[in-house]
Simulated scan of single mutants.
Amino acid sequence: MLRIIFSTFLVVFVAELGDKTQLQTMLLATQSESIWPVFIGASLALLLSSLLGVLAGTYLTKYIPTSYLQTGAGVVFIVIGVLTLSGKF
């Protein structure tokens, strides 16, 4: 169980570094008199979005094979990357 916790932490931590969410959080922190409300709000948002992802993944794997979900997620990431590079996302 500890291995799953560590690997999940590592993957999410690395994925979140330097993304739009982190940059927006930094911007909000510069506009706030105290960093704590920004930290708490950002932490709760990440917690809720992670919970939704876990629940959705648990629900979807009951009806769709994991290999299809992994392939679909890969395709979506590629499409989002292409759209981002083209300036349409």
Rank of each mutant, 00 (worst) to 15 (best):
G74E: 07
V79F: 15
G57Q: 05
L23Y: 15
I35S: 10
Y59D: 01
A42V: 10
F6L: 12
M1P: 08
A42H: 14
L83V: 02
V38E: 05
V75H: 05
Q31T: 03
Q31C: 03
G57A: 07
T30M: 13
I40A: 07
S7F: 03
F9P: 00
S67Q: 09
T8K: 01
V76F: 14
A42T: 10
Q31L: 08
K88T: 03
F6Y: 10
L85V: 06
L23S: 07
I4W: 08
L27E: 04
S67M: 09
S86I: 01
T21I: 10
V14F: 15
G41W: 07
Y59P: 00
V79R: 02
T61W: 06
I40F: 12
V14N: 05
S86E: 04
I5D: 09
A73H: 07
F9D: 00
V79I: 15
L28A: 13
T30R: 15
S7W: 07
V14K: 04
S86H: 04
S32V: 00
F9W: 03
L51S: 10
I80V: 14
A45V: 06
V75Y: 11
Y59K: 04
S50R: 12
K20I: 11
I64Q: 01
F9K: 00
Y63A: 04
S43Q: 09
V76Q: 05
T25H: 03
T30Y: 13
F89M: 08
G74H: 11
G18E: 07
T61N: 10
Y63T: 02
F39V: 07
Q24P: 01
P37D: 00
L44E: 04
L23V: 12
M26E: 11
V11Y: 10
S7A: 02
L10P: 00
V12L: 14
L28F: 10
I64E: 02
E16C: 03
L23H: 14
A56Q: 01
L55A: 13
F77T: 02
A45G: 13
M1E: 08
E33N: 04
V38Q: 03
F9H: 00
G87P: 01
L51T: 11
L55R: 07
E16G: 02
L2R: 11
A73Q: 08
V11I: 12
V54A: 14
P37F: 05
F13L: 06
M1G: 15
L10H: 00
P65Q: 07
A29I: 00
I35T: 04
F6N: 02
K62G: 06
G53E: 03
F6R: 04
G57D: 08
V75C: 07
Q24M: 14
L85S: 04
V82W: 12
M1F: 13
L47M: 14
I4M: 05
V12F: 14
G41F: 14
R3T: 06
E16M: 06
V11E: 01
G18Q: 12
T30N: 13
I35V: 11
I78C: 13
F6P: 00
L44V: 09
F13D: 06
G41Q: 08
L23F: 15
T21E: 12
R3Y: 09
S50N: 12
I64F: 03
V79N: 01
K62Y: 07
L55S: 06
I80P: 03
G53V: 00
